[in-house]
Write a protein that binds this DNA or RNA. Structure first.
Length: 841
RNA sequence: GGGCAAGUGGCGGAAUUGGCAUACGCGCGACACUUAAAAUGUCGUCCCGUUUUCGGGAUGAGGGUUCAAGUCCCUCCUUGCCCACCA
């Protein structure tokens, strides 16, 4: 037993690979291309975690596999290096984010090298470097010129702790996704990308890509397309109806509220209207001379409260609240009925028109509200189901306190005038047409708010004229540098506003009175296009040359966490579609194939987290077991897309496997003779199995096949050198260090590998992935399973190509089979070629 | 509340996609080597009864389709993840 000195071996090859520039993409156009992409990390102070280790190992395996198969492979890495943690650290310590970020990046690179990831480390991109963000700004400029960017003052999510605006997608449970602080609504001017204009394509084109179905489904749900109608309700003052009001003349037709509904077929059942507290109509009431609201103070108070609703209130009581707008009524356009109007926070300001027609008989939320405020419930849809119909018959408009069910399905119309008896699907169009409304598509997706009042981000390349007009700074002024003379302490005002240098720069270029935009961009902007930069990281004239875009994009395989389903993947797709529309790209989907890795759990199956103190550090594992064993265990522990339980006891298993290989190569001599038939068969089966498994990202079973091969080796007297070389190539994507070591040892010293100490001869990664011979993976003799009534009773050795007749004959000749037939009549005999014979009695 | 994924030995997990359930690995047991231990090697290891043989049962629970179900269909239970008043 020779000691497997992994640290010595790994150190040696790490150095050698770097010196030889093994991972530089050479760009051989004669070879087919393959672009494999990792989700680049944010360089945090904690360093690479096990989740990175897993997904980067997976992509590294694919990279090496494709390279060995003769592909020209692009496999780059970079850092999403703008962002809040570095800035927050700067606020605490005064250390500039640039410094901490660079320091963290160095650590990440060290760790990536340690794990043997085959990146070209000479040109890793950083989104925070001017040579990168110059192009982020350039793309912003293109969006600006093409009308895809708008400035809007809006009620927007404001995080009081981060002192910045955040996107809808970054709010979870009413809290800031980053710092868990309760989000407030605040009126802030800011820049938006018009992603909503792409909603339809973002849904439709999901059909073109090979992504996990769940991810596609979630994206569709997030975009949230629904077909419905916009219906106008006229609003009038109750007082104006009576003659007591002397001002009353003819009702003006200007006061309308538009509602969005997916169920215009239920219009006759709309017994009240509800406006979101944010709805502009409510705010405009005091100035409205036509409409006198009697309880304005109450309404104002309610709106204030809704705005500041605490987290606790939101979670614990789902009970609906609201206030009636006293003195006003709406006219139901279908039947002319006067119905009350409410404002209530169960209606969302940001969806549809921010107003709904309430149909309590056919909507659970409306029903709940109606019950609480004792509002009428009128059934207008009858289920086609008979039992339900008799139960519902003749109930008409009821008092909502009565116990009744809400029927949300489709059916036949009742209580709906001339539409009675019509099918509800048909009635949607008919009723909409009847009242002069129109059918529309509505999306849940909001425009993407990208302005952040933070320092450590990409400056928005906009300046304002003395008149306040926004202007793109122009290509010639890019990169529009992030100023250095800035105090990071958050005050609610954007830090860049305090930079004298930025103000001076702006006036110098554009003239006196011009002012710079002080907001920086959401970091999701930086990560929405980085994969377009990878093929051409050094290009100073273009974000990527046309030629290289054509050569490399779109990405063939993207591997990363499922947590990016909504934001990153959606935004990246939007960028590509927008750039495609401007003629900058020839393709319109960035990632052809996408796969997620699962989470890494501790040995008790609990998610690793700092607060639980159960985080496993890849550095420790590499120190203890080596990079090869660490990589291999991650892949062996289970399927890539499922969670991995990190159990050190389990790592021992792959460690022992590597040690076994190492020793096997010391103790045997490897003659150039031919392999025995049996060994050849095993080798070819292994080649086939491993190739297919790697292609399907089934690394766990690929490794088990490698193990089976090695387990069999001691049974063979002769292990020919060619077979063992092929084995090492199969092993190399998983355990690159040991494979390289043993391969070189084998090459350098034909009879006794280790006599000469295994000096580097040629890298295993410049070899060819072995091919299997289809004839060699088939066995000559096979075992036919013999069943009686589906139960295995015997196994019979037979030639692989045995005919149906022969197989049946052989099985019937078996004593065991005859015993189980027991003289009964044979009804049927099933024969599955090469597999089984089943006798049915 | 909705969506998605998953339930297979003591544990991580396999199963040619409907055809021998439990590959591979961990753990455990016995033996060998050793003064001893570790390491390593060999054999064994789903459960029950007979302990070579043989028979029965088992893939969360129950039902169905089929010659044949871990795999397909229906009902239910459990766990995890994501989204949650989207009209």
């Amino acid at each position: 037993m020779v000691k497997y000195n992994f640290s010595k071996i790994e150190r040696k090859w790490r150095k050698y690979w770097e010196e030889k520039g093994l991972y530089k993409t050479k760009g051989n156009k004669k070879k087919p291309k393959y672009y494999i992409l990792d989700m680049f990390p944010y360089p945090s102070g904690d360093g690479l975690h096990m989740g990175h280790t897993e997904s980067y190992t997976a992509s590294d395996i694919i990279y090496r596999f494709k390279k060995l198969q003769g592909y020209d492979v692009l496999h780059r890495q970079g850092f999403d290096s703008f962002g809040l943690p570095a800035e927050n650290y700067a606020i605490k310590t005064g250390v500039h984010p640039k410094k901490t970020t660079e320091k963290n990046i160095k650590n990440y690179i060290k760790q990536m090298k340690m794990l043997g990831f085959g990146y070209d480390f000479s040109n890793l991109i950083r989104t925070s470097s001017p040579s990168y963000y110059k192009w982020t700004q350039w793309i912003f400029g293109k969006f600006f010129e093409n009308g895809l960017v708008k400035r809007k003052t809006d009620e927007i999510n404001w995080c009081p702790s981060c002192q910045t605006v955040i996107a809808n997608e970054q709010v979870a449970d009413g809290k800031c996704e980053r710092c868990k602080t309760k989000i407030k609504q605040k009126e802030v001017p800011g820049w938006f990308f018009k992603i909503t204009g792409f909603a339809e394509d973002l849904i439709k084109d999901l059909d073109k890509v090979d992504w996990p179905e769940a991810t596609k489904k979630n994206q569709r749900a997030w975009i949230g397309k629904s077909e419905g109608a916009i219906i106008k309700f006229q609003i009038i003052s109750k007082s104006k109806l009576s003659k007591s009001n002397p001002k009353s003349k003819i009702q003006k037709n200007e006061n309308f509220i538009k509602v969005f509904t997916t169920r215009p077929d239920t219009l006759f059942g709309a017994t009240y209207l509800v406006l979101a507290p944010e709805h502009k109509f409510v705010a405009s009431l005091p100035e409205n001379n036509d409409l006198m609201i009697r309880n304005h103070e109450d309404v104002k108070r309610y709106i204030e409260r809704a705005k500041n609703k605490t987290e606790m209130e939101r979670l614990e009581s789902k009970e609906k609240t609201g206030v009636k707008l006293e003195g006003l009524v709406a006219i139901n356009p279908a039947n002319g009925e006067k119905i009350p109007i409410f404002t209530a926070d169960y209606v969302l300001g940001g969806y549809g028109t921010g107003a709904i027609m309430a149909v309590p008989a056919h909507d659970e939320r409306d029903f709940e509200f109606a019950k609480k405020y004792n509002l009428p419930v009128r059934e207008v849809i009858e289920s086609e189901n008979k039992e339900q119909r008799t139960r519902n018959r003749e109930q008409g408009t009821r008092n909502s306190k009565e116990d009744c069910e809400v029927y949300v399905g489709s059916g036949i119309l009742i209580n709906s005038g001339k539409f009675d008896g019509m099918d509800s699907e048909e009635a949607k169009r008919a009723i909409t047409e009847f009242i002069g409304g129109k059918m529309t598509m509505n999306y849940r997706l909001r425009d993407w708010s990208i302005s952040r009042q933070r320092y450590w981000g990409c400056p928005i390349p906009i300046v304002y004229s003395p008149e306040g007009e926004a202007k793109f700074v122009g290509e010639e002024n890019l990169p529009w540098l992030l100023p250095e003379d800035v105090n990071f302490t958050p005050t609610g005002e954007a830090p860049l506003a305090k930079s004298k240098e930025l103000k001076k720069r702006t006036e110098k270029i554009f003239g006196k009175g011009w002012t710079p935009e002080a907001d920086t961009m959401d970091t999701f902007v930086d990560s929405s296009w980085y994969f377009l930069r990878y093929p051409d990281t050094e290009n100073e004239k273009e974000f990527c040359s046309k030629e290289k875009l054509k050569r490399w994009l779109p990405v063939d395989l993207y591997i990363g966490g499922a947590e990016h389903t909504y934001m990153h993947l959606l935004y990246a797709r939007f960028f590509v579609k927008a750039m495609h529309g401007m003629g900058l790209l020839e393709f319109d989907e960035p990632f052809i194939k996408l796969r997620h890795q699962g989470m890494v759990l501790d040995k008790n199956g609990v998610k690793m987290s700092k607060s639980k103190g159960n985080v496993v550090n890849p550095n420790d594992m590499v120190k203890k077991f080596g990079a090869d064993a660490t990589r291999m265990y991650m892949m062996f522990a289970g399927p890539l897309e499922e969670d991995v339980t990190w159990n050190e006891e389990g790592v021992k298993g792959v460690y022992r496997f590597l040690e076994k290989i190492y020793n096997l190569f010391q103790n045997f001599k490897f003659p150039t003779s031919n392999a025995s038939k049996e060994l050849s068969r095993l080798l070819h089966k292994t080649i086939k199995g491993v190739t297919e498994d790697v292609e399907g990202l089934k690394f766990n079973t690929a490794i088990s096949k490698l193990m089976i091969f090695i387990n069999e080796c001691p049974r063979h007297k002769v292990l020919p050198r060619e077979a063992m070389e092929k084995f090492l190539i199969l092993l190399s994507p998983f355990a690159p260090f040991i494979a390289e070591e043993l391969f070189n040892a084998l090459k350098s010293s034909p009879s006794s590998p280790f006599k000469k100490g295994g000096e580097p001869v040629e890298s295993i990664f410049n070899q060819k992935w072995p091919k299997y011979d289809p004839d060699m993976v088939k066995d000559e003799m096979i075992e036919i399973v013999a069943q009686v009534n589906g139960k295995v009773r015997d196994k019979i050795q037979a030639p692989a190509d045995i005919s149906e007749e022969e197989a049946k004959e052989k099985v019937l000749a078996s004593e065991k089979i005859q015993k189980h037939i027991g003289g009964k009549e044979i009804k049927k005999i099933i024969f599955i070629k090469g597999r089984l014979v089943n006798i049915v009695v």
